[in-house]
Design a protein around this nucleic acid. Structure first.
Lengths: 344, 344
DNA sequence: CTGAAAGCGCTAACAG
DNA sequence: CTGTTAGCGCTTTCAG
């Protein structure tokens, strides 16, 4: 690599100090129009490009934020990431993406003091299960925004939709349809399964509000929220003496897996079993049948998270941890309403 | 941010020079066991962490590679990305992900001389359509590996599967099934559509080898390779006087969109129309029906690309541009073989 | 409004 | 095997 054009080279050619060139390049105010022009000409002539690495070192910041998700190839995350990248870029930040594979150890390492420190100025974190231990070990100096609803433990922000309410609405929708035996797929009754547990809570609340009690054997736990999990859980449910006539799935992928099982047994959706998902991923809008779902406002989640993180990065005195809610809505499609709705 | 522990602090405490500390931290050989220990103790005591930014500047490299894809939320890319990230990380590199939204301007900017120069040491590029102009403008000093088959124009590498052969196999499969009127969805008869055109070539070759000539009105162009493209194209095909009895789709998403249209018209897959896709994304293994597809070895593509890029980064004299083929295979599922195959 | 100069923290010639 | 020291290229305090 041949020697690069430096700030000094430009300064020399323009007959000014490197300080002035720096001012011009960074668009600072204190420069005469005349000198600005002269410098600009020199910049163009030499083809000068600032060295990001040097700037980073001098400023002590990297201009990059990290986004940490469990799985990159899960549609919900990749759709969300897209919005985050766009938002960050619009604000002059690069995005470094990291995948934890759902490994709690990896998740923990990411927000703890690490050797990658300084490689990013802050982190937007979508934990699969972030336990109290991990939060206790975290580097308090690292600006952090966590995705997903949770009671903020202070020192960082949360952005997410109201899971309990959304889950209750989903369940209400099935109850409104007159379904009698509603199952839930995706519970995770252990420390790192808080998100799942909030959905289960909503599921129960919807029943209770009508004086009903959900059958415990219809609440199925799954290790993850993928198609295979849904397919397997559904197979189990259909083998019951009294199988469900509706299912609330904690993700659209789970719903797609469940639908697959239902159909492959020769049953019909929604006639025999109505299915509702969660996340509103694109797949669900094109599957057979299309999937009714809870749709979180991903764009809003992304921009809120980025804005809040940048604010946190910019502040000397860290702002208090905030709990932020993005809106969601129920989108009714064929898997609960039936084919009649389809016009496509 | 309070002052960080520096190399010098460690050196002072250990009573050695910073050079020696650097040697220890980087695991270089020339250090006595005794001093190494002493230094290590000092490192631990002070909780020293190397400053990546400073190292980058001193070394003139960033330890990051960029991966540029058209769309992050397209399953094929997100699945591929996952493998790339894993491979890069295993080799000590961070991955910076970028999305071009298929914008040729954006694609061009990425491999041209840019102000982001030095932020990454090399680029793995999956262009939607990389025209000759873009290649001409590229920064010849930037190590580059391009994904997707193409005749290498020198100075960079290509990694991809043999599109023509794969497409021919896909078409052969449909012909072997005895289908008479086979359509193709996804052609892109313009400069940036080379990948699509290779598939069309394979489609034609399969016909020619049997003395057949494909009907031109059954070869449909689409702007992208998504579900809506497939759905729309299929609608058009079904409106023809003599609709096809089989379709070769240039991506699984297109196939899923097409299937959606077929089914919503009350027709059956594969009885009325057999459908084959391309990419082997997870969706296709769980859809109704499951989708027969061409499955590229993504893991192989990713590791080959990363290895080759790192080699390129490490060499002073750039190696010649190589054309590398990853293996692929045909996976037969319900959309061509029928439900009988299904056991799930 | 502009110059001079001191770092940012680390690496790597060049001695010794 | 280890110390000295000169940068990497930019930002930024402090003068002027």
């Amino acid at each position: 690599m041949r020697r690069e054009v430096t700030l000094r080279d430009v300064a020399e050619l323009a007959g000014v100090s490197s300080r002035t060139v720096s001012n011009v390049v960074n668009g600072y105010a204190n420069v005469t129009e005349r000198t600005r022009e002269r410098v600009q000409r020199a910049v163009d002539e030499l083809g000068y490009r600032p060295n990001v690495l040097a700037r980073n070192l001098a400023q002590g910041r990297s201009g990059q934020i990290a986004v940490v998700v469990p799985y990159l190839d899960t549609p919900y995350f990749s759709e969300l990431l897209q919005s985050v990248i766009r938002a960050a870029r619009a604000r002059g930040y690069n995005v470094l993406i990291d995948q934890t594979d759902g490994d709690p150890e990896h998740e923990r390492a990411f927000i703890a003091h690490g050797s990658r420190r300084l490689l990013f100025d802050g982190v937007i974190f979508s934990p699969l299960g972030l336990d109290q231990q991990a939060l206790a070990d975290r580097d308090p100096a690292l600006p952090l925004v966590v995705l997903g609803e949770r009671t903020s433990d202070g020192g960082f922000d949360h952005v997410g939709i109201d899971d309990v309410t959304a889950s209750r609405q989903a369940t209400d929708h099935l109850l409104d349809l007159g379904r009698q035996r509603i199952a839930a797929i995706g519970d995770q009754p252990y420390a790192t399964g808080e998100a799942a547990q909030r959905r289960t809570r909503g599921f129960r609340l919807a029943h209770q509000a009508r004086g009903l009690v959900p059958r415990e054997d219809l609440i199925i736990s799954t290790p993850r929220f993928n198609r295979p999990d849904g397919a397997q859980a559904m197979a189990h449910l259909l083998d019951l003496a009294e199988p469900p006539d509706a299912v609330f799935c904690y993700s659209d992928l789970v719903a797609l897996g469940a639908i697959r099982t239902i159909v492959s047994r020769g049953l019909r959706v929604p006639e025999d079993v109505a299915v509702i998902g969660y996340d509103d991923i694109e797949d669900g809008a094109y599957s057979n049948p299309t999937v009714t779902t809870i749709s979180p406002d991903k764009e809003m989640i992304a921009t809120t998270a980025v804005d809040r993180l940048l604010l946190r990065i910019a502040s000397d005195t860290p702002p208090p941890g905030l709990e932020m809610r993005a809106p969601h809505k129920l989108i009714i499609r064929e898997s609960t309403a039936g084919r009649t709705t389809a016009t496509a």
